[in-house]
Simulated scan of single mutants.
Amino acid sequence: MKRNKFLILLLIGGVIFSYVFLGDFFRKKTLENPVYRVGKLTKIEFIGKNSSDWLYFKYAVNETEKEGKVYIKDTEYEYYKKRLGKSYIVAMNKNQIVNNLFLTYHLYIDYPVPNDYPSPPNGWKKIPINKALR
């Protein structure tokens, strides 16, 4: 019986370690070779006091609306609340499953874009720096 408990704990620990390791791997790979899209900030979800919050955004992939999220600090709540409904550049992995499982999104809050500005179906390979976007 003790051996079974040990094996179960070992299996659970292995799964958690693998998830953390793979998440770190995919986040680094995503920042090396991201796809850039327009994301419209939609809501902030409170996680807990003295914790981080979730900042949600919507973006399109081949004309299909998707939702992503990034952590923000509790202290940044008011800053991002003022920006809800506005659009910004978001870097992400090319693989949507990787984005959903490992949250490989990176929000570029310094790159606002008009709300009606469309991103190409497959996103951009580089941040679209254009005076018309700012």
Results as ranks from 00 to 15, higher is better:
Glu45Asn: 07
Lys94Ser: 08
Leu84Pro: 03
Glu76Ser: 12
Glu63Val: 08
Arg37Tyr: 07
Phe25His: 15
Ile44Glu: 02
Val113Gly: 00
Leu84Gly: 03
Lys29Gly: 04
Pro121Ala: 04
Tyr117Thr: 08
Ser87Thr: 08
Lys81Pro: 01
Val61Met: 08
Phe102Asn: 00
Phe102Trp: 15
Glu78Asp: 15
Asn62Ala: 04
Tyr77Phe: 15
Ile72Met: 02
Thr104Glu: 01
Pro112Ala: 03
Thr104Val: 00
Leu55Gly: 03
Leu107Phe: 07
Tyr108Pro: 00
Asn62Ile: 14
Gly68Cys: 05
Val70Leu: 03
Leu101Phe: 12
Tyr88Ile: 01
Val61Ala: 07
Thr30Trp: 14
Asn100Met: 13
Lys81Arg: 11
Leu107Gly: 01
Asp74Phe: 12
Glu63Pro: 00
Asp53His: 03
Lys81Ser: 05
Tyr108Asn: 03
Gly39Phe: 01
Phe57Tyr: 09
Asn95His: 06
Met92Leu: 15
Phe46Lys: 10
Tyr105Met: 06
Leu31Gln: 11
Glu45Gln: 11
Ser119Lys: 06
Tyr59Val: 06
Gln96Asp: 10
Leu101Gly: 01
Asn93Glu: 07
Asp116Lys: 07
Glu65Val: 11
Pro112His: 01
Gly85Lys: 04
Ile72Asn: 06
Lys29Gln: 14
Tyr36Asn: 01
Ile44Pro: 00
Leu41Cys: 00
Ile72Cys: 02
Asn62Gly: 01
Val113Cys: 02
Gly85Ser: 02
Ser52Asp: 15
Asn115Thr: 08
Met92Phe: 05
Lys58Trp: 07
Arg83Val: 06
Thr42Glu: 08
Lys43Glu: 14
Ile97Val: 13
Pro121Glu: 08
Pro121Cys: 04
Ser119Glu: 09
His106Cys: 13
Lys81Trp: 08
Gly85Thr: 05
Asp110Met: 05
Phe25Leu: 14
Lys69Phe: 09
Val38Lys: 10
Asn100Lys: 14
Ala60Ile: 06
Ser52Phe: 14
Tyr80Cys: 04
Tyr80His: 00
Asp110Thr: 13
Gly85Phe: 10
Tyr77Gln: 14
Tyr77Arg: 15
Asp53Gly: 01
Val70Met: 02
Phe102Cys: 02
Leu103Asp: 12
Leu84Glu: 09
Ile97Gln: 13
Lys66Gly: 03
Ile97Asn: 10
Tyr108Ser: 02
Leu107Trp: 11
Leu84Arg: 06
Gly85Val: 04
Pro114Gln: 05
Asn50Tyr: 09
Ala91Glu: 03
Leu55Tyr: 09
Gly68Thr: 09
His106Gln: 14
Met92Glu: 11
Phe57Gln: 00
Lys43Trp: 09
Asn115Met: 05
Ala60Trp: 08
Lys29Leu: 12
Lys86Asp: 09
Leu103Val: 14
Lys43Asp: 06
Asp74Glu: 14
Glu65Asp: 07
Tyr79Gly: 02
Asn100Trp: 11
Asp53Phe: 06
Ala60Cys: 06
Thr64His: 13
Val70Pro: 00
